[in-house]
Design a protein around this nucleic acid. Sequence first.
DNA 1: CATGAATGAGGGTTCATTCAT
DNA 2: TATGAATGAACCCTCATTCAT
Lengths: 199, 199, 199, 199
Amino acid sequence: MLKERRLEQVFQSGIEVFSQKGFHKASISDIVRRAGIARATFYLYFKNKRHLLSRLLGYLLQELDQRIKSIELGEGQPPPLEQLRANLTRIITFGLEEPQLIQMLFRHDVGLDEDLDQELHRFYERVTDRIEWALRLGIEMGLVRACHTKVIAYSVLGGIKEVMKQIASKQISALDVQATVESLLEFGLRGVLVGSVER
Amino acid sequence: MLKERRLEQVFQSGIEVFSQKGFHKASISDIVRRAGIARATFYLYFKNKRHLLSRLLGYLLQELDQRIKSIELGEGQPPPLEQLRANLTRIITFGLEEPQLIQMLFRHDVGLDEDLDQELHRFYERVTDRIEWALRLGIEMGLVRACHTKVIAYSVLGGIKEVMKQIASKQISALDVQATVESLLEFGLRGVLVGSVER
Amino acid sequence: MLKERRLEQVFQSGIEVFSQKGFHKASISDIVRRAGIARATFYLYFKNKRHLLSRLLGYLLQELDQRIKSIELGEGQPPPLEQLRANLTRIITFGLEEPQLIQMLFRHDVGLDEDLDQELHRFYERVTDRIEWALRLGIEMGLVRACHTKVIAYSVLGGIKEVMKQIASKQISALDVQATVESLLEFGLRGVLVGSVER
Amino acid sequence: MLKERRLEQVFQSGIEVFSQKGFHKASISDIVRRAGIARATFYLYFKNKRHLLSRLLGYLLQELDQRIKSIELGEGQPPPLEQLRANLTRIITFGLEEPQLIQMLFRHDVGLDEDLDQELHRFYERVTDRIEWALRLGIEMGLVRACHTKVIAYSVLGGIKEVMKQIASKQISALDVQATVESLLEFGLRGVLVGSVER
DNA sequence: CATGAATGAGGGTTCATTCAT
DNA sequence: TATGAATGAACCCTCATTCAT
C-alpha cells in the first residue's frame, strides 16, 4: 500500500503548507518538497492545487459534522444540556488535536472558488440552523428566553469559532478542555451577570 | 485638491476590489481601471499593492477603535451598561454603513504580511484586553460572575465579529440596529436561559 | 511609432520561427529572443502563441487572395488566358518574395486549432471553387473539354501548391518566374503529350 | 503469436491517433489506451513516440513504393500508357482502402525529425525522379512535348497528392476509382483544352 | 504629475520516458 | 514480458512593478 502512504504524505504536507501560508502563497513546490515527492507526482493524486485544498477542507468539515450531533429529546436520551456539553467537548477536543486543520479552515473562509465557498457556506449554515432549531425548541419548552434566534445563533457560532481559532493558535492554553467547555456553556446559558437563579 | 480626489478614488476602488476579490485575486489592473487612472499612477501614491491594503485596514481599525470607548466609572458618567450599549450600537451601525470595509477586513484576517498580521493581531488583542478588563472590573464590583475571562472575551469578540460579518453580507437584515444590539446585549449578559432574575 | 516597430519585429520573428520549427516546436522563448523583447512583452501584442500564428496566416491568406483575381469576361478585358497567366505570375512571384510565409503555411496545413483549420479549409475551398467555376465556364464556351471538374480542380490546386513549396524551399531554381509560369500553363492547358493542335 | 498481436494493436492505434491528432497532440496515453496496453509496455516495442511514427510512415512509404512500378519498355510489356494507368489505379485504390494512413502522411509532411524528414524527402524525390525520367523518355521517343521536366514533375506529384488527400478525407466521392484515374490521366496527358488530337 | 509600454520572476501544469515490482 | 507509479524537464502565461516620455 505504498500508494496510500504517498497520498497520506501529500495530505499531511498540504495541511501544513496551507495552514501556514494559505492557498495562494502555498506553491506546489512547497507541498511536494515537504512530501518528498516529485512535482509531477502530485498530479497523479490531485487534479490541481485547488483539488487538494478541496479534499482537505471536505475531510475537515466531515469530521466536524460528525462531532456535532443533533440534540435528541425523549426517554433514554441524556438531558439536552448534557448533549450540548458533549458536542462542545468533542469540537474543542478536535481543535486541540488538529490545530493545523483548524488554522487551514480559518485561513480560507471565503474567496477561493465558487464551489468551495459554497461548501463552506453550507456548512456554517447547517451549524447555525441547528443552533437556531435548538433555540426555538428551548423556547417552546419554556427553557429558553424569547430572543432573535438568528442573531443569537450567529453569535454562538462566532464565539465558538473564535475560541477554536485561539486554541488552534495556542493563544488559549486550553489543555484543560473541560474548563473551557464549561466556561463557554455557562456564558451561553447564563451570560456574564451574577444573580441568575439556579435552575 | 485634485490630488486628494485621486487618492480618494483609489481608496474607494481598493475597498471595492479587495472586498470582492480579496488581496491575491485583486489585480492592480482591477484597481486602476476602477479608479480611472493609469497603472503607473497608482505607484505614485502607494509603494505597492500591500501598501494600499495596509492603509485601508489601518483606516478601518482606527474607525473601529474610535467607536469602542472604554467603560468609564465615576460620577457624571452614564451607567456601565449604557456605555456598553453605546459601544455596540456604534459598531453595528458602522457595519451597516460600511459593509465593504467590514468584508474587506474579514477576508484578510491573517496571512498577508508579517506587519499587517501584527497590526490586526494587536487590534484584536486590544479589543479582547478591554473586554477582559471590563469583565474583571465587573467581577470586582460583584456584578459579573467569576469566569475564565480570556475564554469569555474571545467568545464575545467572536460573536460580535460573526454578527458583523453577517450584517455586512446582508445575511442579517439588521436594519433594526436597536433590536440587534439588544439581542447581543441580552445574550451576553444573561445568556439564553429563562429565569435569570432581573437586576 | 515605436509600438508598430515592436509589432513588426514580433511578426517577423514569428514567421521565421514558425516556418523553421513549426507551431508546436516553436517556443515563446524562441520568438521573443529573436525579436529582442522580453517574454511578457509578447503578451502585450498577442493573446497567446496561437494568436500570433493566426494573425500571420490570416495575413498570408489575404495576400494570396488579393493575388488571385477572378477571370472576367467581356469587352475591354484581357483574354482569359492572359488573366490566368497573370494570376499564376503573381502567386509564383509572391512565393519567391516571401518563401518563409509559404513554408509556414505548408507546415500548418491542418490540426492546430478548430478555427484555424476552418479558415485554411475555407481558403482552399474558395480557390478550388474558383478553378471549378472557370472550368465550367470554359466547358460552356466550348474551350474546355468535358471533365470531372472537381478532380481536375484539386489536381490543379495540388500542382500549384507543390510547385510553390519547392520554390519556397529553393528546390526549384525559379529565378525565371516566366518560364515556370509558362510550364505550368502549358501543362494545365495541353498536358504533356505532343500533337495537341494549336487553338 | 501474442506479441505480434500486441504489436499489431499498437500499430493500429498509432495510425488512428496520429491521423486524427497529429504527432504533437497525440499523447502516449491516447495510443496505449486505445491499444489496451500499459504505458510502459509501449516502450518494450518502440524506443519512443517518434519511433512508432517512423515505423508507420516507413511501412506506408513501402506500400506506396510497391504500387508505383517503373515504366518498362520492350516486347511483351503493356503499352506505357497502360502501365501509367495501372500505377495510378493502384495508388488511388490504396488511398481508398487506407485513408487513415494517407491522412497520417499528409499531417506530417515535414518538421518532425531530421531523419524522418529525410526519409519523406527521399521518397518524394524518388517519385519525382521517376516522373521526370518518364517525361524525358517520352520526349526522346517523340511522344512528350519538350518542357521544364522538374516543374511538371512537381506539378504532377502535387496534383496526385492533393487528390489523394481529398479522397482520404472523403471530400471526393471517389468510389468510382476508374473515373478518377481517367480524369487525372486525361488532364495530365492532354490538359483541359479541347482540340487536342487523338494520338 | 501622469502615463503607456516594458519587464522578469515565478507559478501551475503537461507529458514523454524510466523504475521497481 | 508486463505494468502502474514516479519523474524532471520544459512550457505557457500572469502580474506586480519600473522605465521613458
